[in-house]
Structure formats: C-alpha cells, structure tokens
Design a protein around this nucleic acid. Structure first.
Lengths: 201, 201
DNA sequence: TATTGTTATACTCTATAACTATA
DNA sequence: TATAGTTATAGAGTATAACAATA
C-alpha cells in the first residue's frame, strides 16, 4: 500500500529522492517510528502481499503500472520544464493541434483533453500570450473559437517532440522488441477492460 | 501524438467526455478545422505510426501505458473525491502511515512521496485539522516531527482502501490471471529499465 | 431554448528559497 | 556547521457554477 499514487515527483526528486538501491529495510527506532527508507519505495512490490490491507493481484498489478507511468511521466515533466519551460498540459494542447493544420475548435480541445472549457480558455490564453497559438472567431458561427499553432509554436513543439522521443527511447532502453509487443498487446486488453467498465456506469 | 499526457481528466470527464465508441473519424469542416471527435481519442494507437511526428515503437508503448494509467487514475481520483472527499496526495500520505503503527518522521514521508518538506507540512496540516493524523515532537530529537494516523484516520483509510480495491477489480475485470502475470513481469522489467536510466544521470 | 465559451472563485498542488530551531 | 522542518510566495491546475453571446 505504499506510494500508491502519483504525487509531486518531479523537481524535488532531482534533489532529494533516493537512489534505486538506497537503504535495506525500513529502519525503525525504539518507538517503532519509521525513520529510514525501505528498499521497495518504488512500488512496494514485495510488501504489498504481506500487508493487512492486501487486496490481491489486480492491486499489485495496478501499483506497478502506476509506478512505471509515474516514474516516466515525472521525469518527462521535469525535463520539459527545465529544458523548454513547458508544462504537460501546454505540451498536450500543442500536441492536439499538431496535426490539425487549420486549427481546432476550443470545445473539441476541451473534450480531447478531458478538461473543462473554462480551464481550456485559461490555458489557451497563456499560450496566446507566449506566441505559441492563435485564437480566431469562426466566420461560420461566431460562438466558436478556432485555436491553431503559430509557426513559432509548431517549431517549438517539434523540438520538444523530438527530445521527448529521445527521452522515451533512453528510459525504455532494455525493453526488447518482443517484450514491447507483449506489453503493447496486454495493455490494449487492459485499456478495453477499463473503457468497458467505465461505460457501464 | 494525441493525448500524450495526463491532464485533468477527472470531474469534467464525468459530464462531458465521450463514450468509448463515439464518433467515426475526425470530422473536418470546409476549412479543415477539426470540430468533431476521432475514435482513437483514447490513445491514438492507430494514428501515431502514421503521424509525421512518429518516433517509433517505444513511443507507442509509452502512450498506451500512459493512457491506461491515466484512465484508471482519473477514475480513482474522481471516486475518492466524490465518495470520500479525499485527494490522491491525502490518500497517499495515509497509505504511507498505514503500516507505520507508531508513526513516521515527516522527512521520511517527504522522501517516500517525493514531495518537498514544505509541501508535506501543508498537507499534514490539513490532515491534522480534519482529525486524520497527529503530529508529535520527537522526545529524542526535538527537531523531528512524528506523524501518525489517528484511530479515526485509520478507520477512514480502511474504508477507502477497501473501496479502492473493489474499484480496481471492477476496472481490471476481463484481465485473466495469466495476462496479469505477464503484465506484472514485463512492467517489472520496464521499471528496472527506467530506474537504471534515471540512475545514470 | 440549446450551445459555445467566458468569467469568477475557491482550493489544491508544485516549485523554490529563505528562515528558525536544534543537534 | 549540518539537519529537520516551517514559512512564504508565485504560479499552475482542478472543480463548479453563473453568465453572455449566438444559433
């Protein structure tokens, strides 16, 4: 039941987080107060089955899945911020626009990013200020706002996307093509399982 | 290159997000402005290889991994909030304390959660206010603060943990034991790959 | 009336750094 | 001097709801 969920994880980690092999087992003082790090801080993989709060294999799998995505995402987020002064939502929004050469309607951005229109408005506002995107009123329907990348925004995004791909290749270093295929396939099953379960509600 | 990253994803989704089978292909008006949803909004699995910004199999795998964890985490986050008025960091902090019967030093919490001490102080403060945890000065070293669950906090956490396990079982519905093992194993490899890569820096 | 976005607000989280108290 | 936390602050993201403009 440790490190169940995504938390901050980025900048602070660079300065304070433990190396992967830190510690031995959770040290406890004479009052049983936990003071030192246990070795399984990354996802508690060995301990979770022994915990009184154990709830089975699915939970272990979910913890490990979450650990992987959190580790990767935190690092990506940190590098985006340090190297490009960019946040994930900003990057995500630009990624949405990348293939929409003529732009995308604000409401569509909202749906794709699963973020409320009000918050997209604010995000777009900051990207307009920094010169990455434009906002235009649709001539066909004056309620709709068309958002598009500027050439500057497109160039910036391409730089980030290239770096991003390199980072991923670096992090996935030892995953073989075969393991990659297997993971891709099983994660596809998992995705369908989740989407189906969510659709039942 | 769509929906690369975790975004908001929780509350808004409940009201506005598309069902998993919405749409057909991205509709485009006479100006080529994207107005309607494409079917692969979940992770763009089919499209990413065709994209000019394609950067290979690792990237596809990463997108799918991120999609899975984001879908699950968003749903968990939403349910935690709606059913228990709890955020992920709060839950995570309590999860850390669950097996530390006599409490845990604040700095240790900070390291495990990869969140700065200052932000842990604020998080603990809110949990003290709501009666979930206590904060005590260590008699051995008056600089250190020992954080522990109250019996109320423990009871609340148990309720949440039980519900959480049920949610996960629901979402992982159609994953067989065998597929679960395979995923668990390969994700273990991936975790080691990432941890190794991060340690190289 | 319904839809598209905007504005407003309150809160949480993130990131950083200066600072205090204790060892 | 070094360590454990606290305080402060700025910015971004999250969640809701009321609202205006247009269809």
């Amino acid at each position: 039941m440790k490190a169940l969920f995504k938390t901050a994880g980025q900048a602070y980690k660079a300065h304070h987080a433990l190396p992967p092999d830190a510690g031995t087992i959770a040290d406890v003082n004479h009052d049983n107060v936990v003071k030192t790090i246990s070795p399984d801080w990354v996802d508690g993989e060995t301990k979770v089955m022994e915990s009184p709060a154990d709830h089975g294999q699915d939970l272990r799998l979910w913890l490990r899945l979450l650990t992987c995505s959190t580790l990767i995402e935190s690092e990506i987020r940190r590098r985006l911020r340090e190297q490009f002064d960019c946040t994930l939502p900003r990057f995500d929004l630009m990624a949405q626009l990348e293939r929409a050469k003529a732009g995308m309607v604000l409401g569509e951005l909202s749906k794709r990013m699963m973020v409320s229109p009000g918050n997209i408005t604010a995000l777009v506002e900051r990207l307009v200020e920094s010169g990455h995107v434009t906002r235009t009123v649709s001539p066909a329907d004056r309620r709709v706002q068309i958002i598009a990348l500027t050439s500057f925004g497109r160039a910036e995004f391409e730089k980030m996307a290239t770096a991003h791909a390199d980072w991923i290749a670096e992090l996935f270093d030892v995953i073989t093509a075969r393991d990659g295929e297997i993971l891709f396939d099983r994660l596809g099953k998992l995705k369908r399982s989740v989407v189906t379960a969510l659709a039942r509600d």
